[in-house]
Design a binder for these strands. Structure first.
Length: 408
DNA sequence: AGTCCACAGGAAGGGCAGGCGA
DNA sequence: TCGCCTGCCCTTCCTGTGGACT
């Protein structure tokens, strides 16, 4: 029972926080020092340096797996480039765009709209032809002598969705500008994307390439120690915790973002429990919690029909497991569509066509929630084999969320 | 070698919301 | 205000496809 004469936050305020500055442990935080990426930073810096003297330079293609420091290093270099340029009387502006942001930069129109907004020009969400946006962007850019560096993060997502026309359009702008200059930094964790690009785009975007290798456990440990010193009160995080976070993240392709998330969430769990120290058991709990939050957040942001398709996949997956020979049985597009229709009918929803559901399956695959690959069953047709890309505990919570939503 | 299946996925077009210009 | 334009989401129609089966 809550007694209203007592302040519910008094306990929280009584205990001293384990954190000094939690922002330092956020993936978005820009640290003063970046470890083990000297070579890549210097390489990117030397490619962009001619811009400071007003010379043309090459576009850059940055690739490496998740959490290898691509974004943080690129942002670090661009920030310094902008500062150095501006303090030397040369106008350099940088724009960061994450192409995976739904409804923000996931179509060519939305990408150019976002670029225009960054340049201070408001444009409607729809209604204008894309080439009008393109022209406005071009005119605004060429109003004065300046250099614009556009950093397109997760560029593979946009490429898979709409092809490489937008890249072709962007890269050819430079030849038409009279006063301004435009440079593009494409960042991706899809190492195969480069090979799928149109020859003209490839030669223009991949003029320079920088590969970010995964961190090993020792490097991750050093990165964590630096953040702990600033982020936590001294002595609240033990040596074992750092080693565990680093080892777990090293297993996941040397992902520094993962290591930081583990550390921060472990700290939050310890604090919530009222413990005075972050322990290895907190890291174990954090490991499950992070996956869960990420997947639930993604699922929650999906349109209703995508959620219904995912529920259909989860339900079918479950019923297959219950059967003895479930290993031999495969989850196919047709089965998913039938179950999806049942879910829609049960909820009074109008069903989308199989063609559209096929696209939704592709989108769920691109988000990493499911795995779908095209297979041929010979005489019995060509279809997609679908499986779930999440652990049992995450699956259980996702199912709970979807079942509550659809009551199925 | 030819047939056939169950889709994949491309192309075209409709409906809707919204902008532009006369 | 109205007609015409656009992008987006979706449907409809269509062709293409890998490999088991005949």
């Amino acid at each position: 029972m809550v007694v209203f004469s007592e302040n519910i936050f008094s306990n929280y305020m009584k205990n001293q926080s384990l954190f000094n500055n939690k922002d330092v442990l956020m993936p978005s935080f820009a640290p003063k020092r970046i470890f083990h990426r000297d070579k890549e930073i210097i390489q990117l810096g030397s490619i962009l340096a001619p811009l400071l003297r007003g010379f043309q330079t090459n576009n850059v293609f940055v690739y490496g797996t998740c959490g290898t420091g691509k974004t943080i290093c690129s942002r670090f270099v661009l920030k310094q480039l902008e500062e150095t340029g501006n303090s030397n009387g040369r106008k350099i502006k940088t724009i960061y765009i994450n192409c995976k942001m739904k409804k923000t930069a996931d179509t060519e129109y939305r990408l150019f709209a976002q670029l225009l907004r960054e340049l201070g020009i408001e444009v409607p969400d729809t209604g204008l032809p894309t080439d009008v946006l393109y022209r406005r962007f071009f005119e605004k850019l060429d109003e004065e002598e300046q250099t614009l560096v556009i950093m397109l993060d997760e560029i593979d997502y946009l490429f898979k969705k709409i092809g490489d026309t937008f890249l072709y359009n962007l890269t050819r702008i430079n030849g038409e500008l009279k006063k301004a200059r435009l440079n593009i930094i494409g960042i991706t964790n899809d190492l195969g994307m480069r090979d799928s690009l149109d020859m003209r785009v490839k030669s223009s975007l991949s003029e320079e390439e920088i590969l970010f290798k995964p961190y090993n456990a020792t490097e991750l440990k050093e990165i964590l120690m630096e953040r702990i010193n600033e982020g936590f009160r001294s002595g609240v995080v033990g040596e074992g915790v750092v080693g565990k976070c680093a080892a777990l993240a090293a297993q996941e392709h040397g992902d520094a973002r993962r290591a930081l998330d583990l550390l921060r969430v472990a700290g939050e769990i310890a604090e919530r429990r009222g413990d005075i120290e972050v322990l290895e058991e907190h890291v174990d709990i954090a490991e499950n919690s992070i996956d869960l939050d990420k997947v639930i957040e993604t699922v929650r942001s999906q349109p209703k029909h995508s959620q219904a398709v995912l529920l259909a996949i989860i339900k079918l997956n479950e019923s297959m497991k219950k059967k003895n020979n479930w290993v031999d049985k495969r989850l196919l597009t047709g089965d998913v569509f039938n179950t999806y229709m049942d879910i829609c009918k049960g909820n009074g929803m109008k069903t989308l066509t199989q063609r559209r559901v096929s696209d939704l399956i592709t989108e769920l695959d691109m988000l990493g929630i499911i795995n779908a690959r095209v297979i041929s069953k010979g005489r019995y047709g060509r279809t997609r084999e679908i499986s779930l890309g999440m652990s049992d505990s995450v699956l259980e919570k996702t199912k709970k969320f979807l079942v509550e939503r659809f009551g199925y």
